[in-house]
Design a protein around this nucleic acid. Structure first.
Lengths: 365, 365
DNA sequence: TTGAAAGCGCTAACAC
DNA sequence: GTGTTAGCGCTTTCAA
């Protein structure tokens, strides 16, 4: 690749000053039509493309929004040869953010965490964008705190855990309410009583909120649950979900010495793993046991039986993140940090016995 | 937001020169440990984040790859409240490209086309990345030609139509072979004879290739097809697909004065639209008529009956794009332009009568 | 190992 | 309208 032409080259070739060349690109109307054409022509001949870096440097803004997310590669999912099934939240958030950003003339820079030197992920992204969103716990709190002093940052999913990050905008989904609704459905509509909640060791704000929703629904129905999930697995993967199902079936861990009527998982991945384990054991879902998940990942409806779950509006999440950032950049939002909680919806599908026998082209969704 | 601290601030605070500060970030080992710590500490206290723009400007490289894609918002899809169903190729390509880029330490900048001033989409992206991929026909050929003189560009999907772009790397999928296989399946396995191909007015290289595959299969089976698709719609949307189905059913356009046995659509969107139209008319699929698509979008398997189609490996496409770019950037690829054709696979589902009755957790996929 | 100084390509005041 | 002139914050020789 040859050295790229610069404003100077274009200016010389078209017989104007570099300032005029710059104007032609930034504010075409401020230049006489004839001059403009001359400049544009020269630029075309030379193959001139303005350097985004130089522009950003000089104008202190890039027209780019950023998104940092964790290296969410569930090893179980990794080798599913089916791309659709492997689509994760992050993909949906990206989609939403890109759309909203685009509407406002911004582009989106995305980067997943990956170990590195002193140049952490955020630093890399932060240095090239006007503002960015971070999926909960993708980056060290301290680092975020530092960076957020310099540019707008919004936290996604996961309540603002750390008080030092209280000044950040943040948007999450109604984890507690969602799990509450789903549990209530099981209790009330299906008349179940012995429910086992499966959480995770590593205490995550989202999962804790979901568990609270579960407990609240149980309490209201007069069903006793401990203050702890029936089971906590080390990770929220399919493999662990399968193990959980085995544990719940095999040894008689519950009060009655019987298998619970329903396995309520903290996420879809685990629930899917459980579905497979149960099938291997010959336990029928939902006839012998009901299984539910949380998230509404695409895979959840591809499995058989399709998974009853709580759907998170991930695309909306991404859109909101972009809107919030842009609002800040334009100084529209006040000084107060904004905190949004997006509503979720329960997807009643086959694994709880709601069949959802599809009719019509879009049935069974 | 306060003015962000710079190398000068950090240098001053830690009693070194700006050159040393720079070294600490670029090549930590070239600085004595004690000095390094001092610099890092100062940076932390100040909340220093290196400016990506300044770095890029000075070093002539950004560590970012770009992706430009069209504003693929099928208006029909736009208001499906179901995010999963709305996932398009572009999302899958993004996913693949991001993953591959990440593996090599690059971030990804994505931008969809949108009308603008002289600052076209590409220019904006091109100015901020080390190289980028473009979905076929997202940007004017001429512009691409100019830009590709300065940085690596790879064309995605869609054969290198324009000879002036012959020097670009490019990767596409086996459109012709895919449609050939699918058609052969209809002809051979299902014994169909009267097939109607539905294409699009706007002659697209991909669609033409698919149609060639269709013709080849028909010719081999001794089935006569014209040199033209049975129908060409103005756009490849669901609405147009529905219209096409109506046309194919309503008026007796085909040779026999009868409805064709199969509607072979150039893409999934149209096929899905057709499915709905047929349902409205009370025409049963696949009993009364067989319908097929092309692409393998997620929606294709959510509809009922699920759509028999040709699945494109979009994630792979994205990965290949990134690999190609990175290869160029590292000067590994030779001088010759690389041209890849990724294999596709036929998904036999319900709409052709292959049912695909699912068994097992992942059945019916 | 560290510092000094010269850009990198553009924007933004400010004159003309 | 258009030109002049400073930087923007960093990397990069070249010396020391």
């Amino acid at each position: 690749m040859n050295a790229a032409p610069t404003v100077y080259d274009v200016a010389e070739r078209s017989g104007v000053s570099i300032a005029t060349v710059s104007r032609v690109y930034r504010n075409p109307d401020s230049v006489r039509a004839a001059t403009r054409e001359r400049v544009l022509a020269a630029a075309r001949e030379l193959g001139y493309v303005p350097s985004g870096n130089a522009r950003g440097l000089a104008s202190r803004s890039t027209g780019v929004l950023g998104l940092c997310f964790p290296d969410y590669a569930d090893p179980d999912t990794a080798d599913i040869e089916d791309d659709d099934a492997a689509m994760l939240y992050s993909d949906q958030i990206i989609r939403g953010m890109e759309r909203a950003a685009r509407r406002h003339g911004y582009a989106l820079l995305i980067a997943a965490s990956l170990e590195g030197g002193p140049e952490s992920l955020v630093a890399k992204v932060a240095g090239r964008v006007d503002g960015f969103a971070v999926l909960a716990r993708t980056v060290p709190t301290e680092e975020l705190e530092v960076i957020s002093r310099r540019q707008p940052v919004v936290m996604l999913a996961g309540p603002r855990a750390d008080p030092s990050l209280d000044h950040l905008d943040h948007v999450e989904v109604a984890n507690e309410d969602g799990q509450y609704e789903l549990t209530r459905h099981l209790l009330h509509d299906h008349g179940l009583r012995r429910l086992a909640y499966v959480g995770v060791d590593d205490t995550s704000p989202d999962v804790e909120a979901r568990f609270r929703g579960f407990r609240r629904a149980c309490a209201e129905a007069g069903v006793d649950t401990g203050t702890e999930p029936a089971l906590r697995m080390p990770m929220m993967t399919q493999a662990e979900g399968a193990r959980a199902a085995d544990l719940l079936c095999g040894s008689d861990t519950d009060t009655d010495g019987e298998r619970p009527e329903a396995f309520v998982f903290a996420n879809d991945q685990m629930a899917v793993g459980a579905l497979q384990a149960l099938e291997r054991r010959g336990v029928r879902v939902p006839d012998d046991v009901v299984v539910t998940g949380f998230d509404g990942i695409p895979l959840s409806r591809l499995v058989r039986p399709s998974l009853t779950t709580v759907r998170q509006p991930m695309v909306r999440l991404g859109e909101q993140a972009a809107e919030l950032l842009i609002g800040r950049l334009h100084g529209q939002s006040g000084d107060e940090p904004v905190s949004l909680v997006l509503p979720v919806s329960v997807a009643r599908r086959e694994s709880c016995g709601c069949a959802g026998k599809g009719t019509g082209t879009f049935g069974a969704v």
